[in-house]
Design a protein around this nucleic acid. Structure first.
Lengths: 329, 329
DNA sequence: CTGAAAGCGCTTACAG
DNA sequence: CTGAAAGCGCTTACAG
């Protein structure tokens, strides 16, 4: 028989009004210090805590923030999620986790979260349509995108500088004398894949080069491994494989090793993200660091700024990347 | 200017009472099919969704489940979390994610979650005291522990068969003729560390053997790497290192390779969990499979069973493990 | 099957 | 600084 102690119980026990106990628990409310202390003490002994659901109903804020995350078991997603959840928690928010499962529709999930009166939503996976952004706005819940920007959506975004990152990697390869560069892309229709590939093409063009072979995985280690084998077995003469992210790059290294191809001697390999683990294993990966902590913090900042000023212009924050040269290239 | 459309708006537009629109959205409520359809249609056009916070206040259920997770960027935690979140979501629950940050107290977090009137809590990290279990019970929120069992706590647990797993690994090593076996434990005071070490000692004893060297990491790759180097540099003569989990085992393999020690020729290495990634890399890991999906499903089942029967006897479900022989041992 | 009323546990103007 | 009252948006007995 669960016993919920309510503000009324505390009020009665402390000999004050219900409004007083509410005020005692509200920072900055007008209560005499003595009374607040007394109420808090009584609440303590009764084991009272304000019911946040009831408080949320009053309309101010629930403290809930929806977080749409991708496959958590993938290194980058896990890494980002960890920082996001930490940042939110430290700032007093509670993350409501919405997994972007296969054939699940992000709009549907956001709608559901909105029904919980979340104070905002951070979307780090799946594709977001204007429609969703509109729903959020009309519900008064700011929407912040991570790793994707939606043109004219009215949603704030934070995204790393994909173009710069790939440019740095291409330049390194070119300086090493690599000329026959292959590209292993990630899932089509993703923002990251597009920006990264475009930068590779453009930078190569600047050196009067072009992509020599092109394949596509799905950002997973396994797909990197499979495509790595396929590239080798195709017999195409290449001296470098640039991958759209680290997980695939690690898979490719594994595949080449299995085919007896030496990295970086025969073929150089590059990744993107610098996930924990990029430095370990058979051949430490040359990659570009995607600053997830900064990303998480910026996302939170955008969220809070938007709560203050719901109708200011949407912002796109580009966080900087840095080259991380290791052995693979 | 966010506009929230409420049940009243729908009622007015549909020409019915507010109770009717509530019933239209409640499965199994007594409404004529025609009326329900009509109400639903009107709600649809107005863009109405029941406010789950308000619904939660009525006292039944909020659909919220607290999930206490460890460091998400670690492979096992991420893997488990993924399955947990998927299972909860598919069953209509919303996971409220509570990170077990360093020097944060699980009791505090659970208390906070309870204030959100969560329907239950699943704890897969941190240590849980009887106290917490009691708080949950008195709040009417079932508590389910994963990977830890609390004696006489009244909390249900699901935990893999640690003893069996380590026994299988020891037997394999002994059959290979390994006699000088070292143990690399994880964080002290964790349930997994204790059960696993005990089983190793006990099984070795059965073969008239004992642990030849003992070290302790914190379940992370990095700590495995560090301790791996330390073991080698200590000059102790050993022919196998059993690790309390995969992440450390992978770190050890890395360390030995750096010292020019051959795995498994010179020294065999074993892990525990069979995380994705155990099969990849320099030397595929011989380990034991910790069935996370089954674990997640069982946890959910325990949670729901407990909602039905709050006072039946607490259960400890042991999920089975299987040996996964690969190259490292 | 349907509606009017009471109530869930808070907070916040409104008076004092 | 403090209390009485109204209200947040729902659901659920209670009548009919």
């Amino acid at each position: 028989m669960p016993v919920r102690v309510t503000a009324d119980d505390v009020a009665r026990a402390a000999g004050v009004s219900r409004a007083m106990v509410s005020r005692a628990f509200t920072a900055g409310a007008s209560v005499s210090a003595g009374k607040r202390e007394h109420v808090l003490r009584v609440a303590q002994t009764l084991g009272y805590r304000p019911n946040l659901i009831a408080r949320g109903l009053t309309g101010q804020r629930t403290g809930l923030v929806a977080v749409v995350a991708g496959e958590i078991s993938r290194p980058y997603e896990a890494w980002l999620l960890e920082h996001l959840v930490r940042a939110l928690t430290l700032h007093g928010y509670r993350p409501l986790l919405l997994p972007a499962l296969r054939n699940t529709n992000v709009a549907e999930m956001i709608d559901h979260a909105l029904a919980y009166q979340v104070d905002g939503a951070i979307v780090a996976a799946g594709s977001v349509s204007r429609d969703i952004a509109d729903r959020c706005r009309s519900s008064g819940a700011p929407l912040v995108l991570i790793g994707r920007v939606l043109e004219k959506s009215g949603a704030d975004s934070v995204c790393c500088n994909n173009g710069e990152g790939m440019r740095l990697l291409v330049e390194r390869l070119v300086k090493q004398g690599r000329r026959r560069i292959a590209w292993l892309g990630g899932s089509a229709d993703t923002f990251s894949d597009q920006e990264r590939r475009q930068s590779v093409e453009q930078t190569l063009k600047h050196y009067a080069l072009s992509i020599q072979a092109q394949r596509r995985g799905d950002f997973s280690f396994q797909s990197g491994f499979n495509e790595g084998l396929a590239i080798m077995d195709s017999g195409e003469a290449i001296d470098a494989i640039m991958c759209a992210n680290d997980a695939m790059a690690l898979g490719v290294i594994e595949a080449l090793s299995q085919r007896g191809v030496l990295v970086p001697d025969d073929v150089a390999i590059t990744g993107f993200d610098d996930v924990p683990g990029a430095a370990w294993g058979r051949c430490p990966l040359t990659t570009v660091r995607n600053p997830v902590n900064e990303t998480a913090l910026e996302a939170l900042q955008l969220l809070e700024a938007r709560m203050q000023a719901p109708s200011s212009n949407p912002q796109v924050v580009r966080v900087g990347v840095t080259l991380v040269p290791r052995e693979s290239a």
